[in-house]
Write a protein that binds this DNA or RNA. Structure first.
Length: 410
RNA sequence: UCCAGCUUCGCU
């Protein structure tokens, strides 16, 4: 009766589907399924465990549904990645259930879109919600802001900024940092700084966002100031902080600084270089054609067993190719455990740049034999290599071959 | 009983 919802919630939290199913059986035996609270908890449990079908079954068989029942099914769809179906249930809630969607319903449906990359749809639905006279809460804002950021929807960000200013109570870290990120993605560091200074969240994520923003804006000096200022603010730098600063230096052509930072990082307690760190550091070596330093990082990668990772491996391949050491590149490639298209692309463009036309055909076929189809990067890499080596006839030949494979040039 | 992608990386 009263304890089933609570116990079901616990099994949901643990992601324990088996336990949830057992409870379902028990609930049926005792005829508690007709209880709204119990049934709603069941919908939620199935939804979160990825059993959308079972969640729907519960919804359909329960004698009467309330707002939470519909919200749970909307959430279930969103969690299963079927955003448009979530939207359908939002509509059915009103048409079939005769209930008006509340803020939870709207937020859940919007979340369905942001989680699957339908950013325009998420933002559009957010505006539909506002037009319907429903006031957003902090969670709603935290859900739409990443979509705004990716879309570089400065105006929507401004709108939410104004809203948050008028309703201070909803300015939690998720919202403020989300807003900060919208401005930084729009390249508007002026407004980003305003928010950063005005709202006193200023946690590690806020610092990291600002550092990235300044680096992208060509203001590495400002980024470094913030980086150094973190100790004073008594914020402990994490791997993301270091990675952001390192790749920021690289993007601004300051390779030496990037590698110094990488070395500095290794002396610090509590932070470990990860695949991002190594990938970035290797890119710096590739751009400088610094084979010696690249090899050092390679050794470090092996010591940490990170050379099998596709990202690090790809960066190694790239680095060796830039240094014209194809044998080493091939070895690094072979060491990648789960190679993907990008690994192949790196190797192919390397062979191409080094004028090894015969090997490319070979690689090309091996790649397809592994079930991977060339994409535009593959072709660009091959073509760019031929151009560098002055084989204009081959370029034209490749170009027509590419078109015969139904790929459009870009 | 229901709603959260806060920030960093790779192949032209």
């Amino acid at each position: 009766f009263f304890i089933f919802p609570v116990v079901l919630k616990a099994s949901t939290g643990l992601g324990d589907l088996g336990m949830g199913e057992q409870l379902h059986g028990l609930v049926i035996k005792r005829q508690f399924v007709s209880n709204k609270y119990v049934a709603n908890a069941l919908i939620d449990m199935y939804g979160k465990c990825g059993c959308l079908h079972d969640a729907k079954m519960v919804l359909e068989t329960m004698p009467e549904r309330n707002c939470v029942s519909w919200n749970s099914i909307v959430t279930a769809c969103a969690a299963s990645g079927v955003a448009f179906e979530a939207l359908e249930y939002l509509e059915k809630m009103e048409s079939l259930g005769g209930l008006m969607p509340n803020i939870v319903s709207w937020s859940a449906a919007i979340g369905g879109f942001t989680q699957t990359g339908y950013d325009e749809e998420a933002l559009e639905l957010f505006h539909v919600m506002l037009a319907a006279g429903v006031e957003p809460n902090a969670r709603t804002l935290a859900t739409v802001l990443p979509a705004c950021a990716r879309l570089k929807a400065w105006f929507s960000g401004r709108e939410i900024h104004g809203y948050v200013t008028r309703h201070e109570y909803m300015s939690n870290a998720f919202v403020i940092n989300g807003l900060l990120n919208v401005y930084r993605r729009c390249g508007d560091m002026h407004n980003a700084l305003k928010i950063f200074l005005k709202f006193s969240i200023r946690n590690i994520v806020a610092f990291n966002t600002m550092i990235v923003g300044y680096c992208e804006n060509g203001e590495v000096g400002k980024a470094k100031e913030l980086f150094d200022g973190m100790d004073l603010a008594r914020i402990c730098k994490d791997t993301i902080t270091w990675n952001s600063m390192i790749s920021g230096y690289i993007d601004n052509g300051k390779y030496e600084e990037a590698l110094n930072m990488f070395r500095h990082m290794q002396t610090k307690e509590g932070v470990e270089a990860d695949t991002f760190t190594l990938g970035s550091a290797l890119n710096a070596c590739a751009d400088m054609a610094a084979l010696r330093q690249g090899k050092q990082i390679h050794a470090y990668a092996i010591a940490r067993c990170l050379q099998t990772n596709a990202f690090v491996g790809g960066a190694l391949v790239e680095m060796y190719c830039r240094c014209h050491d194809l044998a080493a590149a091939q070895m690094a490639f072979n060491g990648i455990t789960d190679r993907d298209l990008t690994s192949w692309n790196a190797l192919i463009s390397g062979y191409s740049r080094c004028n090894k036309a015969e090997d490319i055909d070979n690689l090309f076929h091996k790649m397809r034999a592994e079930g991977l189809e060339p994409n535009s990067y593959t072709w660009n890499g091959m073509i760019a290599g031929h151009i560098e080596n002055g084989h204009m006839e081959s370029v034209l030949r490749l170009f027509s071959k590419m078109q015969s494979m139904n790929l459009k040039p870009d």
